[in-house]
Amino acid sequence: MNMAITQNAKVIASDPDPVLGYRKFRFGSFTFARDAYFVHVSWPKGIHTIEVDRFLRAMVRDIGWGFFYGWIFFDDVFGTQNHYGTVDIFAGTYSKGHRDTGVDFLETFNTDDVRVAFETISQNWINEGYDPLRAPMETGSPLGAKTRERSDPLIRGFEPARRMMGLPGDVSPRSDASGHPINRAFADLTFDKPDIEAEPGFEGQIHAFNLFDHIARADVTWNPSFTSITRACICCVTSEEHMLPVIHGNDRNEWFIQLTDEIHWNIQDKNTGNPRGRIVMKSGDVCAMPADIRHQGFSPKRSMLMVLENGTPGLDEKYAKGELEPFPITAARWR
């Protein structure tokens, strides 16, 4: 494996391309260039091309997720791995063909440096009218020459709840007032509020809200919001439509609970990328995503998904060292 570590890396921008208007960027040993249709990532011994819509959908989510838990594959070749303080950017490291021919490359950076670099690139390459966080049918195209850069925030992940969404002093659920109407795909549902009758003096101590209403108002896809936290157990809910624009490699076990509709998941071996098969989850289905896989979801209709994460610090290292088995229900518990 070809590796490097770069401290205090700065992203360096070229002059705008005289024809298309986009800048090229150098960050560490990587360069990033885009044209009308594609992004070209190059490193000392290789170059790789990714369709621009896919690249930008992956990049803005990678930033918004804070590089998430584990590996984010933009495709089978290029991506990032989170080490919670540092981030690897890799090309071909998990691709047998690249490794066998010695053209793989992995470079480790400080997390903040990667965030700044990815934000700088995204800002320059995303035009007004194109929103990579929305479903493809809800936004314009990223193709073609540079027009006008978007002025609103590209990254608008929902502020995470600290205890439970809607409690006094905590984050509020989405609403008409917050500028989040019910999405067209959930317009057939009715949404009411729970009936809360608190005794005097206990207002704000008992609490409930309409979780489905909050999800149905999401203006982003494949972008979770934290709604409730039990110690280090985090409930994330998301609105999913079209395809997850990354392949997620798990560094810990996580659980999916399909609340409405269905999602089709492709499952691969984490290290080799070899296919293991597929899972179709329908409303009410529950399934673990083990720590030794990659997965990518396809949601034919906008659906609601709940993900239970274990945010205990250091779990990634325990799984990596084999101190924890890479699946959640150990043998003794099957009875």
């Binding site: 609970i257 098969g277 597929r278 899972i279 329908k282 009410g284 289905d285 083990p290 699946f327 959640p328």
Partner: peptide, 22 residues
């Protein structure tokens, strides 16, 4: 309710696929 499907070349116990309503 309609349960989904799991078709994997792997030990299905690792995925613990179930349905809430079932």
């Amino acid at each position: 309710y309609e349960k989904g499907t799991i078709e994997l070349n792997d030990d299905l116990k690792h995925y613990a696929f179930s349905n809430i309503f079932e």
